[in-house]
């Protein structure tokens, strides 16, 4: 393989990997604070893609502008799912050891409901935005870089930095970190734990709202799109370290570059087997992930 093809593959992998990371941020944040593996993660992304699509097709809204709608809507939805569906479980189990399996099952239920409601409401047809061709592809040394993908990739870094800063320097952020470290201690020092949980879940989902708006210009949308991103997000987050914000971005880039380079040597199907093997190896030998603490 020559240097051109290799650097081309790396650029591809970086762009795609950063987007994987950005999409996975919410999953990692929610796990870090609530210890809940959100099986419905991809479904929330699917929904925000649809919202972005409908904003464009019904009102002619620019897909990037639709973030103004998707972000608050997804925040509200996440807030609601946490306080209505998951909170009763956490209340019930608060006295005992938290059993994350029940939460996984609960969100698996949310996944089944959301994906199939979307199928019932929107139908199985694949949809795609057509209006967004104003961002041209740039060619650097003969390597094409899609403007839209570049924006998505950059946004992943910005969001990750923004969330980290906010967690460190705002009151709510500090409350979230305190709750993540020790729920009972946080509760005793006057932090409203249920509210913190709901806000965290809301923020996790609103990040998906943002990325829904950012990737809707180039991604075909169907009710089953969520699962593809959902499983990828699990791999990314486990690789980077469940609960780690920077880990999500690092994990995304590792997977993105790994798949891009590997698929130049073998078929993409073998590359995807490779990333699953990597996933298992990490879980068995370093369950805290690349960036997570032991």
């Amino acid at each position: 393989m020559d240097a051109f093809i290799l650097s081309y593959a790396v650029v591809n992998g970086l762009l795609q990997g950063a987007i994987y990371g950005g999409v996975a941020l919410g999953l990692s944040l929610i796990f870090g604070v609530l210890r809940v593996v959100n099986f419905a993660h991809g479904s929330f992304l699917m929904l925000s893609l649809y919202i972005s699509f409908w904003c464009w097709s019904l009102f002619g809204m620019d897909p990037y502008l639709s973030a103004l709608i998707t972000v608050p809507v997804m925040f509200a939805l996440g807030y609601m799912v946490q306080s209505v569906v998951i909170a009763p479980l956490i209340r019930r189990e608060s006295a005992m050891v938290v059993e994350p399996l029940s939460a996984l099952l609960l969100t698996a239920g949310v996944f089944l409901v959301m994906d199939n409601m979307a199928l019932m409401a929107f139908g199985p047809d694949v949809r795609a935005l057509q209006g967004a061709y104003y961002i041209p592809t740039i060619f650097i040394g003969g390597i094409p870089i899609s403007g839209q993908r570049l924006i998505g990739a950059l946004a992943a870094f910005v969001v990750a930095l923004g969330i980290s800063y906010w967690l460190r320097h705002s009151d709510m952020g500090r409350a979230i970190r305190a709750t993540a470290q020790n729920r009972d201690a946080a509760s005793m020092s006057g932090i409203n734990v249920p509210a913190v949980y709901a806000v965290t879940f809301g923020i996790g989902c609103s990040i998906l709202g943002l990325f829904g708006a950012l990737i809707s210009p180039f991604l075909p949308i169907s009710p089953s799109i969520g699962l593809a991103f959902g499983i990828k997000s699990f791999v990314v987050v486990v690789l980077g370290g469940l609960g780690s914000i920077s880990g999500a971005i690092v994990g995304g880039i590792v997977i993105g570059v790994f798949e891009a380079v590997a698929s130049q040597f073998v078929t993409a199907t073998s590359a995807s087997i490779g990333s699953l093997v990597l996933f298992i190896l990490i879980l068995v030998f370093r369950p805290q992930g690349i960036m997570g603490r032991a």
Binding site: V85, L106, G109
Partner: peptide
């Protein structure tokens, strides 16, 4: 499947 989901929850 929606019914399954609700039943599961």
């Amino acid at each position: 499947l929606v019914v399954y989901g609700f039943a599961l929850m």
